[in-house]
Structure formats: structure tokens, C-alpha cells
Nucleic acid binder design. Structure first.
Lengths: 349, 349
DNA sequence: GCTATATACTGAAACGTTACAGATTGTCAC
DNA sequence: GTGACAATCTGTAACGTTTCAGTATATAGC
């Protein structure tokens, strides 16, 4: 053993985190061989492969992310891009948990990339792409003509959108079927004898605003009910504004006898507005609302709810992005979640 | 210009992402000089420094994270470690937004590291430390004797805890003053003539369980009120269980005339339980609850609330970790957030 | 006994960065 | 004119990984 080799050995047996060099020294092989043995390359003997993998497991070898990333450009990172002002609360944590669930036994890390209202929504995307900070991206608040999706499609970076686009371009997405939700809600209200329905919709710029309106309109004509316009507010407005507008609406002669709400927080405001006007839920008016956690029935037992599972959405989105990174065709990574039945309150046993 | 230099130049002017080499070529300097000029090293001439920085800005140079990380070990990552089952929803997103706000104009990225109930809470921490995946860590669900804090303290990795420990060890934290919250709540209820108070506390293993109980007990004896034990459930229990236990309690002869609740979701269950027992909020019993968003008053206007700002907590936690990374003394990075007044509902104008 | 070919392994280079150890000037004291 | 010293800049090596271009040995064909 010459001086050069001696030094190498000394380094490799040092107590720092084990590297390929450590493994190479311990097995008596070259780093190249070790590197290949660990990824089951065919040109490595079966016996050697097993031996290397055994030693690696024994000493708890874990590839250095910076080394891999520098050499290959692979970051092993998925970025979830969030709007810090608009995103509804519970929504966010559920999505995060869903994503986490899926990437838990992969080498991927989840980084949260925020942007605020004041910024161009493209800013964080540009940052991610320009700096190569992620292998895949998940975005929400998807628009029919979404510049972010277009941008990422142009650059060839894998992504998935929460909600669909409408640009004639194919990309992975997960969406809740808001057309079906609105239509079912209308039918349910019609079944209760309600005939004059108001819709508190998502903000116009988002794709699912259109879906929701279409489901609402189609079912209205199907059941022969009519719409009471309520489009001066959306679920993005403040609780106070929604409450006030609802109260105003309910004091009119031509008030609705049914509401459909696209978000649980907004529903609280609607109910408050209804009661501000001196009317009673279940008697003067019925409300069907989406919710993502089972809380609305505690709020008012007269509420009618449809559940939207955001944890599932997060999981599906993560699966889609990983699939695209893994080489699957984007068109095969799209999913739509169907709403369950409209649920009335059932008293606990 | 010899062949060797020519090649270098060709590479450096290529259209890939600019690196130090690109800058070195453009300015006619060496990479070492450029590297130093960018970080304002004193041995670089003022004029050169300006020139390099100007060019860097012009062509949008951004240091390659993998390069820095490999060379220095600095990850520029803060990890937020979350329990995917227990963490209350809105809570999580607010903390994330708070952290994001603070690290927005730093080179730091936020990664979310989840762990589930089935796992040892130390697992994710060990992973982060062993793989050197983060420069700083934020943990929640802090316990009086917290193995995670102890572990990180031993390894010398900067972290901050949401909630305090009680091990005689010094580390950064941010906490809400739950002692003051419980005490104020008791005083407020006593002021309304309530004398028999029940507390729905945090789970026993968390540090703030103790704080809350202490504030509750101290104020009880101060105002001469008594406790109706309600310790078969905590805010970690399911909505259904809390509701059922509350209803049971309220049907007893010795029922409380006041409740204090440490979490908004649990408060919904308490109110439901109260009403299940045929009693009326504000008449038979008053409830003081913490909340992190202004929703409880919409739920029942009779509720009394104290606000806890989790976005602020996230921001403080991020500042603490960054401070520690930056070399500040851990003991100077501790903060306690005082609760505001107990708020009754005020009708909107 | 020779070449061709497959098998199993290896060293060197490169990704972008920073730290170390110089190298080249110019200035000043004497 | 010489030595000392500060000011400013530079090349090389290293972090851990993968890829490229081999090398060495054994097997087979003829």
C-alpha cells in the first residue's frame, strides 16, 4: 500500500457520513463499480452487486443529494406553488398531506413555493424553472388559459394542475367535478321544492367557475327552476362582504329560496346573512355547500353538504407529477373526482 | 488565445444558465475573483466588485444551489416538520405562510417533512440531521421533555420549537401564552357570574397542556370558582367524542356553567354537545374558545373568543431559526405571544 | 495460437462552488 | 536600490456523484 492509497483509506474510513468512496474502500472496489452496483447496472456481477448493497445497507449509506444534483441536474424535489392570500386554509394542509403521503417512500422532498397577490403568478414558476429547483411542479388556482401551464409546457418541465385548463393543450391534472356538484345541488334543492336558486360561485378567472356555472345552468333548465343572480361576490370575497350581500339579497322581494355555495367558509357567511335578514334556514331557504371537513353540520344541522376530499387531490396530483417525471404520457395522468351525494344531517346515535 | 482558452470561452458564452465561469469570461477575471467579488470580499478592488456585480445582475446570474451545497454543506433549506394526523388544519397553512413571508427575500427554501402517528417523531429529525438536508428545523407539538429538541441540541443543528420545553435547556421557541389565555378566560367567565367551569385542554403530552391547566387553576382560586373535571377528552379527540362527552357532562346534576376550549374545531363539538343536552349557549352556559380565524362568531354569536395568530407564530419561528443559523445566541431567540382580550360578538354595522 | 467478443471492473473528468496557497504588482521606508 | 508590505488578483483542489473511455481476464471460434 503506497502513500497515496494509504491516505485514501484513512479518509474513507473516517467517521463522517459514508460516501461512495467509503463503500469503495470497504468493499475493495472502485467508486464507479460501487455506484453502478447500487443502481443494479447489468454490467456488474450478481455477487458483487449483492455484496455492495449489503454493505451499503449495513452502514446506512445514503446518496448525497447535492452530489447527484450537481452531476445529473436531478433535484428530487417537487414544488407546490401556493398563493399565500387566496388559498383557503384547510385546503392547503390537506393537499400537503396528500402529496406527502405519496412521496413518502420516494427520494423526493416537497418544497413549498409561495407567491402573494401583488406578484405575477408566473414569477415563482419562472424562478423554479430558471434555477432548475424542482423536477416537478404542482399549481392550483388554474385558469382556462393558464400562462403558467403554457410556460411549463414550453420548457418541458413536468407539472400537474389542480383544476383543468381549456387551451387545447394536454397536461396532467386533478379536478373535482364541479359541474356535477352544481347540477346535483340544483336537483336536490328542486327535490325539496325550491325554485329560485342563487349560486355563490368561485372567482371568474378560475376554470372551475365555468364548470360550476354550466352545471348550475343545465340543471336549472332540466328541473325548470330559475336563477336569482348573485354574482357581485365570489367565494374569494371576505366573509363580511358575502354576509352583507347575502343579507341585502334576502331582504328583496325576489329573494332566492335556495343557495348553492362552492366553499365552506363562504357558507358560514351566507347563513349569517340569511339570519341577518330575519329568515330561517330550512324553512325559508335551503343551502347546499361543498365542504372539505365535516364541520358544517355542526354549524347548522339544516345545511346540506357535499364533501370534497383535498387530501385525495394532493395524492393524485403528486402521483401525476411523479408519473410524468417517470416518463408516462401526460394525457394518461388526468383524473376527475366525482362528488358524492348531497348529504343532510343525520343525528348521531 | 490558445486552444485551451478558446474552448473555455466557447463554453462560457454558451446559452445555458450562467455560472461563475460565464461571469469570469465576460469580465476577463478568474472564477475565484468573481466568486469573491459577488460576496463583497475585502481583498477585491471596489471598482472590480461593482463591475462584476453589475454584469451578474445584468445576465441574471444565480448561484447553483447544488454547487454551493456540495462545496460548503450549506443547504439553504429550512424544514418544517409536521404530524400529518394531528396537526389542526388551518393552523398548518398559516404557519407555512408565516414562515414563507420571512424567508421570501432570503435564499432559503422551505421543505415540509411529514411524519405520521405510527412513526417515532424522532424519525424525521434523524433523517434531516443524518442526511444534512436542512440548515434549520422547525418543530411543533413540543413536549416538556422533548427528545427531538434534545437530539438537535446535541448535534448542534439550529432549530426552533412551536411551544416551549421544560428540560432546563436553552433553545429558540415561539409560544402563545396559554397560561394567560386560560386565566383570562376564567376571569371573564367569572365576571359573567359563572362559577363552575370545565376546561377542554390540549393533550397531556404537550407542554402547553401544563401551561393551560396552571392558568386555569390559578385563576379559579383567584376568583373563587370551582372546576368541573372534563379530562376524559382533549382537543386531539374526534369531534364526535368531544360532542358525546360534552352532552354526557351537561346532563349531569353537577354540570358546568362555563367552558374553556383550547381549539376552535373542538368548540364546535362542545356547542353541539351542549345543545344535544337541550341547553342554551349564553343562558345556561358560556363558552370561551381560542380560534385562529374569525369564524366562531359566525357559528354562534354567543361564543366568546380569543384569537391566536399562527401566521405570526410561523414568522417568529422562521426568524428564530434564521437568527440561530446567523450566529445569534439561542437564548435571545425566544418569544411569547400574549393573548388579546376575550371578545364577545359585535354585530356588524 | 490467434483474433473476436463478452464480462467485470476501473480511473479520469466533469457538474459549480469555495478555500487554500500562491503570484504579480505597486508603494514606501531607509 | 533593496526589502518589506499591502493590495489585488489567480490556479488548483476538493466536495460526491455519474459518465466516458477504457483495461484486464476469460471464453469461444476457427
Amino acid at each position: 500500500m503506497n502513500r497515496h492509497q494509504k491516505e485514501k483509506a484513512d479518509e474513507a474510513s473516517g467517521q463522517g457520513r459514508p460516501t461512495l468512496k467509503t463503500l469503495a474502500f470497504m468493499t475493495g472496489l472502485g467508486v464507479t463499480t460501487v455506484s453502478r452496483a447500487l443502481k443494479d447496472a447489468p454490467e456488474i456481477g450478481a455477487e458483487t452487486r449483492r455484496r455492495v448493497q449489503l454493505v451499503a445497507k449495513q452502514i446506512g449509506y445514503r446518496p448525497n443529494r447535492a452530489g447527484v444534483r450537481l452531476r445529473t441536474g436531478k433535484t428530487n424535489v417537487i414544488s407546490l406553488v401556493l398563493n399565500t392570500e387566496h388559498e383557503i386554509m384547510s385546503f392547503v394542509s390537506d393537499i400537503i398531506y396528500g402529496v406527502s403521503e405519496v412521496i413518502a417512500d420516494t427520494p423526493y422532498h416537497l418544497i413549498v413555493t409561495p407567491y402573494s397577490r401583488s406578484q405575477d403568478p408566473l414569477d415563482p414558476i419562472r424562478y423554479l424553472v430558471e434555477t432548475g429547483s424542482a423536477d416537478g411542479v404542482i399549481i392550483s388556482r388554474t385558469q382556462p388559459n393558464d400562462p403558467r401551464a403554457r410556460y411549463m409546457l414550453e420548457r418541458g418541465i413536468p407539472f400537474a394542475t389542480h383544476g383543468r385548463t381549456d387551451m387545447g393543450l394536454i397536461h396532467p391534472y386533478h379536478d373535482f367535478d364541479n359541474y356535477a356538484f352544481a347540477a346535483e345541488a340544483v336537483r336536490h334543492l328542486a327535490g325539496l321544492g325550491r325554485r329560485r336558486l342563487a349560486l355563490l360561485a368561485p372567482p371568474v378567472e378560475l376554470t372551475y367557475h365555468g364548470h360550476t356555472l354550466a352545471g348550475f345552468a343545465d340543471a336549472l333548465s332540466e328541473v325548470g327552476a330559475s336563477e336569482i343572480p348573485f354574482n357581485t361576490v365570489s367565494i374569494d370575497h371576505s366573509i363580511e362582504q358575502i354576509r352583507m350581500r347575502t343579507a341585502q339579497l334576502m331582504r328583496r322581494e325576489s329573494r332566492p329560496d335556495g343557495f348553492i355555495s362552492s366553499a365552506a367558509a363562504a357558507t358560514l357567511a351566507i347563513v349569517a346573512g340569511i339570519e341577518d335578514a330575519g329568515l330561517k334556514l330550512g324553512r325559508d331557504v335551503d343551502v347546499v355547500s361543498k365542504q372539505s371537513s365535516e364541520l358544517l353540520h355542526l354549524f347548522r344541522s339544516e345545511l346540506l353538504v357535499v364533501n370534497e376530499n383535498f387530501r385525495l387531490a394532493g395524492a393524485e396530483l403528486a402521483r401525476s407529477v411523479l408519473g410524468w417525471i417517470g416518463g408516462a404520457a401526460p394525457g394518461t395522468l388526468q383524473s376527475l373526482s366525482e362528488p358524492g351525494e348531497v348529504q343532510a344531517y343525520r343525528r348521531p346515535d
